[in-house]
C-alpha cells in the first residue's frame, strides 16, 4: 500500500493551492500514472478519499489517466509502444531502449472553484 505515500505527495503538492482563499473547493484531481509503475488505481482512490477528508478536496473526483509504455530505440531512434513486456525494438531488434513514457507518476491538473 505505498499508494498512501504517493497520495501524501499529491497533498504536499496541492497544499499551497488549497491554502489560497480564492479556492473554495477542489472538484477534480487528475493524475497520470504510467503502466510501468506499481501504483494501483483502486488503492489510489482509497488513499485519496482518506487524505481528502475534511479538506477542500473532500468529495472531489480523482481521475487517473494510465500512460502506456512508449520507448525509443537507441540504435535506430524509432519510437513505439512496448507491448507484452517485450523490451526489444520491433524495427531493428536491438535491446537498448529508452523508456519515454510509462514511468510517470504525475499530478497533472486540478479543477477548482
Amino acid at each position: 500500500m505505498h499508494e498512501m505515500s504517493l497520495m501524501a505527495g499529491v497533498f504536499d503538492i496541492m497544499e499551497d493551492i488549497l491554502n489560497q482563499d480564492e479556492v473554495q473547493a477542489v472538484k477534480q484531481v487528475r493524475l497520470v500514472v504510467g503502466e510501468m509503475t506499481n501504483a494501483e488505481p483502486e488503492a489510489l482512490q482509497m488513499a485519496f478519499a482518506a487524505y481528502a477528508k475534511d479538506t477542500k478536496a473532500e468529495g472531489a473526483v480523482l481521475e487517473i489517466v494510465r500512460a502506456p509504455v512508449l520507448a525509443r530505440c537507441r540504435a535506430c531512434r524509432q519510437e513505439f509502444p512496448v507491448s507484452g513486456l517485450f523490451f526489444f525494438c520491433p524495427h531493428c531488434g536491438q535491446s537498448g531502449l529508452e523508456i519515454i513514457q510509462g514511468e510517470e507518476l504525475l499530478l497533472e491538473s486540478l479543477e477548482v472553484e
Binding site: 504517493l6 505527495g9 499529491v10 503538492i13 496541492m14 493551492i17 493524475l31 510517470e104 507518476l105 504525475l106 499530478l107 497533472e108 491538473s109 486540478l110 479543477e111 477548482v112
Partner: peptide, 8 residues
C-alpha cells in the same frame, strides 16, 4: 483548471 504537472 490549474495545471500542475508535478511528480508525486
Amino acid at each position: 483548471e490549474i495545471k500542475v504537472m508535478a511528480n508525486l
